[in-house]
Computed example of a mutant assay.
Amino acid sequence: MSYKAKLVITAACIVSFLGGFCLTPLEHFIKNIDLSGVTDSTFVSSSAIKNLDLNTPEDGYNAWISPKGNLYMGVWEKGNLRYGTLITEKSVYEGELLNLSPHGYGIMYYNNGNIYKGNWKVGNKEGIGLKHNYDGSMFFGHWRAGLFNAPKEINHKVEDFVYGIDLSKYQNSKAISWNNLALFSDAEGEVYAHPHDDHQYMHPVTFAFIKATQGVNTDPHYDNHLANAKKYKVIVGAYHFFTIDDDVNSQINNFIKNSKWEKGDLPPVLDLESEYRDQDAYIKKLRKYGVKKMQDDALRWLKAIETCYNVKPIIYTSEVWKKNFLNNSEFENYEFWLSRYYNVKPASFNPWTFWQRTCDAKPNGYNSVVDVNQFNGTYHSFMLYRSALNHKIR
């Protein structure tokens, strides 16, 4: 089989090999790990796994059993596996490796249902990481020699808040240290733009809305942002910046062609706001264009994207823009991602699913500014929200 061929291993084979491995992490394993390409052209059954050579493969994509009985899969280079999958009787690991141990960044799915996503050093948790326990509790921050350095006098639970960022060409994806990305919060869990004595705690970046297109153009950093977010298991969503300068059908086709939106992502987003820094100049142009025509075009985009993906898009805008230019009752059929800064929540009469609470945050792992957003609910409700979306998608 060629380098790009698929390695087929059924859950039954893995259970047979591991001798009764718990099914909970196996479900995560099957959903999150793409096993592609092996040198052997035969179907890899449980008996075939047991007969693999005990010498580490030299080169290419291979599955290998260590003398300790651990299963390794990935691309080997001169007998070394720098990134791959490690399955033991206690866990499933996907990520970077050194000398056949987790080292660098990776995710461990334990057979008791716990999950750790973060940094490793020679098999131990080391650095910034997130532990998500089977009972729903979460711990995020610095780890050392496998142990969590818990902040003193912290009052909040990580699972009570869900934060994310949004990215475009204004953020250089290569300058983001994704494995160290973290937001600063106070003891209650509220995220702020900058760290100081009262904001010394950390919170994970759970999701990222990434700009895919604007008008009939694509964002030059979209592919890099998307690839890095997915590599580090950040939940993503794609957004389109609407412009009155381009034909709406061309904008629809542009997003569908270039967004790479897929099942499991957050809903597509239509960004409706001023296209100029000089907002008064843009409003003058918009009124000349026709506010009603802009609204009709925006609704056409929303309906076309919903038809294409079978999921209702979200509208991004500000409270003021929504009041003045999105007062068509049809917009009330959509969820909103509202911007309102200085950590002041949108007014109670403006329902929101996501809230852009600051535009000048400097998170850990990035030395420039980025927008920070909050989901309107806990981590549990956020996952239920995603699950409900996926059930609707064909």
Rank of each mutant, 00 (worst) to 15 (best):
K230A: 01
K230I: 01
Y232E: 04
Y232S: 04
V234I: 15
I235E: 06
G237T: 00
A238F: 05
Y239D: 00
Y239M: 07
F241H: 15
F241I: 15
F241L: 14
F241N: 09
F242R: 14
F242E: 07
F242T: 12
T243E: 09
T243S: 15
T243P: 08
I244S: 04
I244C: 06
I244L: 12
I244M: 14
D245L: 15
D246G: 09
D247E: 12
D247T: 09
V248C: 02
V248S: 10
V248N: 07
N249S: 11
S250N: 14
Q251N: 10
I252V: 10
I252M: 05
I252N: 06
N254W: 01
N254F: 07
N254P: 04
F255C: 09
F255W: 04
I256L: 11
I256V: 12
I256A: 02
K257I: 01
N258F: 14
N258K: 12
S259L: 05
S259Q: 03
K260S: 13
K260E: 07
K260T: 04
W261R: 06
W261Y: 10
E262A: 09
E262R: 07
K263S: 12
K263Y: 03
G264P: 05
G264H: 07
D265A: 05
D265V: 02
L266P: 04
P267H: 07
P267V: 03
P268R: 01
P268Q: 03
P268L: 03
V269R: 00
V269F: 02
V269I: 15
V269D: 01
V269A: 01
V269E: 05
L270Q: 07
L270Y: 02
L272G: 03
L272A: 11
E273F: 10
E273T: 09
E275C: 13
E275I: 14
R277K: 14
R277Y: 13
R277C: 13
R277T: 10
R277E: 14
D278L: 13
Q279Y: 13
D280S: 13
A281S: 15
A281E: 15
A281T: 10
A281V: 07
A281Y: 06
K284N: 09
K284H: 10
K285L: 06
R287Q: 01
R287S: 06
R287P: 00
R287H: 07
K288R: 05
K288N: 07
V291S: 00
V291W: 00
V291M: 00
K292T: 13
K292H: 11
K292D: 09
K293Y: 07
K293L: 11
M294A: 03
M294Y: 02
M294D: 01
Q295D: 12
D296Y: 04
D296R: 12
D297Q: 10
D297C: 05
D297T: 00
A298R: 05
A298K: 02
A298H: 01
L299P: 02
L299T: 01
W301D: 03
L302R: 03
